[in-house]
Every structure is written in C-alpha cells, then in structure tokens.
C-alpha cells in the first residue's frame, strides 16, 4: 500500500519544515505557505489529511478547511494553531468541521497520533466518497428521528418543536439525570444541548454521546463562551455545531436539517462514522462522570435484556 498523503499549510516555512520531518518516513508529505496552492493540491491529488494553521495573511485556516470539505470531502481536517481565540474555534466547528483542534506549541507524539488516526479514517472514507453521495443521502428514513434537547430552560425546545413539528420525536431534558436517562433509553439522532444546566456542567454527557452511538450528531446552543472548553468539546465530543444563545430560528432550522441528514448518511454508511471519532476525555472529574454514566447505561441495558 502506498503511503498516505498529508498536506501541511502554515505561513511560517520553518513550521512546515519542522512538521515535514515528523512525517517524512511514513507519509507522502506535501506542504505550502499558500492556501490557494493547497486548494489546487486538494483538487488534483488524493490527500488523506490536511493540517492547517489558523491565522494566515491570505486566508483563515477555518475558511481553507471549509473549502477543503467541498473540494475533497474524504480528506480529514486538522487545525494546528497558536491562537486559541473563540471566533476561530467556533468557525473551525461550524465551517471547518475539524477532526482535531491542536495547539501550538505541540507535542510531536500528539500530532503524530492524531494524523495517523485521521489518515486511517480517511483511507476508509475514500471508498465511500467515491460513490455518488447524493444517492446515499437519499436513503429512506427508517423510523422517526429522535431529537433530545438538554437545557434547563424550555425556550430552545420550543423553537425545535416549531421547526420540526411532528416529523421528529422531540424530548426535552431539563437536568443532567433526565438527559442521561433519555440517552440510555433509546437512540438519539440529534442532541441540542447547552453546556451549563444551572450550576451543572454537562460537557461529560456530550463527551460520552459518541460512545453510545457514533452516529448521533450534537449541536451546542449556549451563551457560555470559553475557548479552551470549546476546544475540548471539538476534540473529545466532536460536536457538530456551536451556536450562540439565544439562537435564531432560521439558523437552528438550517443546522437541524443538515444534522438530521448527516445522521441518516452515517446510518447508511457506517464506514463514515469514524470520521467523528473522539479523543479520550482529558479532565479526570469528567472522565469519572462519564464512566458512571456508561456504567448506569450498562446496568439499564442488562435489565432490559433480562
């Protein structure tokens, strides 16, 4: 098997040269300081992983990755940035749909393992993406999609109800316990969740969702703004959208539609679901909470099976 191709973009050549050495022996390394050149490479070559800087004079990394999504959907996208500003991280979720958001200065092993994981996933995607995606997406909806709203206030769930009406089963959980029970009970297509329910941080629930069902799509709707927490949610929960609260109806409607569509696509093409594989939970407390949650689900399912 030929080496996978990795495409590196950074406006600092020394960073490119440095990263290149990490991958030289196991990858076919392409690199450029020019995002337009990167787009050209994506159009003409099979690229497994694109690793881009965020702040570049010509184009933001999140913008380049958005274009990469359209140009080469199978390519896995990684952002490697020294900046941890909120706008960049939000754009990298909503537009770039990045697999990993990595920070500079980086640890060689972290970048290497993220790229290796991404390259393997991309290889599996290429076969799927080579067939006509439209026909795949047109796959029939097997049953009514279930949408779970996790929020201490009702407003978001009312908006979701207005948008989706009877097309979906809509469940509102106003505390963490209810949210966990609903997730345990039945598969959820899309979760629309805030990050804080009163004083309770529910990030651990979001970070556990992909372990319950890798196809479940997660939209975060919150007024909570913390860049480092968002970066964690990108890497460890692979949230699909991060929207400001209060959220506009049209914005939410658009994103709900595309997430329901993506859920269907992943159900018909399980090979693609690894594209949202999550990194391990880094916070010890959240790791414990997540473990308890999974334990609870295990017991519940055992009881149902008995």
């Amino acid at each position: 098997m030929s080496k996978p191709t990795i495409l590196l973009i950074d406006d600092e050549e020394r960073i490119l040269r440095s990263l290149r050495m990490l991958f030289l022996s196991n990858y076919n390394v392409r690199m450029t300081t020019d995002p337009h050149e990167a787009i050209r490479i994506l159009k003409t070559e099979k690229v497994h992983v694109i690793v881009s800087d965020q702040r570049m004079p010509v184009m933001q990394g999140s913008e380049l990755l958005r274009i990469a999504r359209d140009t080469s959907p199978a390519t896995m996208r990684i952002l490697l940035t020294g900046y941890s500003d909120l706008d960049a991280s939000i754009a990298s979720v909503n537009e770039g749909e990045v697999f990993r958001y990595l920070l500079k200065p980086w640890l060689a092993d972290d970048v290497k393992s993220a790229v290796a994981e991404a390259a393997a996933i991309a290889e599996a995607s290429f076969s799927v993406h080579s067939v006509d995606l439209k026909s795949v997406q047109a796959g029939v909806e097997h049953k009514k999609p279930r949408v779970l709203i996790i929020d201490s206030e009702e407003a978001t769930s009312i908006t979701v109800r207005e948008i989706l009406g009877v097309r979906c089963e809509i469940v509102w959980a106003y505390n963490a316990q209810m949210a966990m029970e609903e997730l345990a009970k039945q598969d959820v297509s899309v979760v629309v969740s805030d990050l804080m329910l009163g004083e309770t941080n529910v990030a651990y629930i979001l970070k556990t969702i992909k372990q319950l069902n890798p196809q479940t799509q997660c939209i975060v709707v919150t007024s909570f703004n913390d860049t480092s927490r968002l970066i964690e949610l990108i890497n460890q929960a692979q949230i699909s959208r991060y929207l400001p609260k209060p959220v506009g109806k049209n914005l939410l409607a658009r994103n709900l539609e595309s997430m329901l569509e993506r859920f269907n696509l992943l159900r018909s093409q399980p090979a693609l679901q690894n594209r949202q594989a999550v990194a391990p939970i880094s916070d010890d407390h959240e790791k414990m909470q997540s473990g308890n949650f999974l334990g609870m689900i295990g017991r519940l399912r055992a009881r149902v099976a008995a």
Partner: peptide, 17 residues
Amino acid sequence: AHEINAPLGYVQNNVTI
C-alpha cells in the same frame, strides 16, 4: 505570546526530532 509561540513550536519539535 503568539510571537513566541510560533518559533517555540518548531524549535521544540525540531529538538524532539
């Protein structure tokens, strides 16, 4: 911090390599 971060990134990586 950003100005220091960029060189720090490749210096650290280069030394590791």
